[in-house]
Amino acid sequence: MRTLGVNVANDLAYLAVADAQEVVDITPGVVKFAEGLPQDERLTALRDEVRKIIAVNKVTRVNILSAESTYKATYPQMTTRITIETIFALAAAESGLSCRRVSRPFVRSTLDLPKSGKLAPLADSYTSPVGSNWNGKRSLAAVAALCHGGE
């Protein structure tokens, strides 16, 4: 089973793929909306890119990491995050794949990580860097990808 983990921060989606219990290198490791396109074209362009990433990397499931429970953002920041996450869910559904949100407590429990403190430093120490933009970004996508089983 190859699981795509997704961690959205600001207007970027950080990605990692786990094949069983091993994180593998993928390109790109980060995606965002294309600049200079009208809004409707930005949405479909990102969806098409996500579908390509799913196909090229032979992904069989998508896990989207939920925000910290203390996450605070402005309305535009929140809508951007939710829109990007929704595009990943839509692309997974269109590809016939299971997609789920994984909460940070679920990640901690599944991977037997400490319950206190921020998840990012724990993810950094739990995973070995695979590619760029790792610490606190793609490492969070990796721990989401490593979570198997139900929530």
Rank of each mutant, 00 (worst) to 15 (best):
N135E: 12
A142P: 04
L4H: 00
A13K: 00
Y71C: 11
L46Q: 00
D19L: 03
K72P: 00
T70W: 13
R2Y: 03
K52A: 12
D11L: 03
T27H: 04
N57E: 05
S95D: 07
N133Y: 14
T70A: 13
V30N: 06
K52W: 08
G96M: 10
A144P: 08
F33A: 10
A34E: 10
V143I: 15
D48S: 14
L43K: 01
P38F: 07
R61L: 07
L43P: 00
A45E: 11
A91Q: 03
T74P: 05
F106G: 01
T3C: 08
F106Y: 09
Y126G: 03
K72N: 10
A145F: 08
A45R: 14
R101V: 05
R138L: 06
Q39S: 11
F106S: 05
I82N: 12
K115T: 12
T3K: 06
R2G: 03
C99T: 15
M1D: 07
A92K: 02
F33N: 02
E41K: 07
H148K: 06
T27K: 10
G149P: 06
R101W: 10
T127P: 01
F88D: 03
S125L: 14
E41W: 03
E94N: 13
P38M: 10
G36S: 04
G29D: 05
P121S: 15
V50K: 00
E68S: 13
L111V: 09
I84E: 08
R81N: 11
T74M: 10
V50N: 02
H148C: 06
A18F: 07
I53G: 01
K115H: 08
P129W: 03
D124S: 11
N10W: 15
L12N: 11
K137L: 11
G131R: 05
Q21H: 11
V24W: 04
P28L: 12
R2L: 05
D40Y: 10
T110H: 07
N10G: 15
Q21E: 15
G36Y: 05
L113A: 11
A67W: 03
G117A: 14
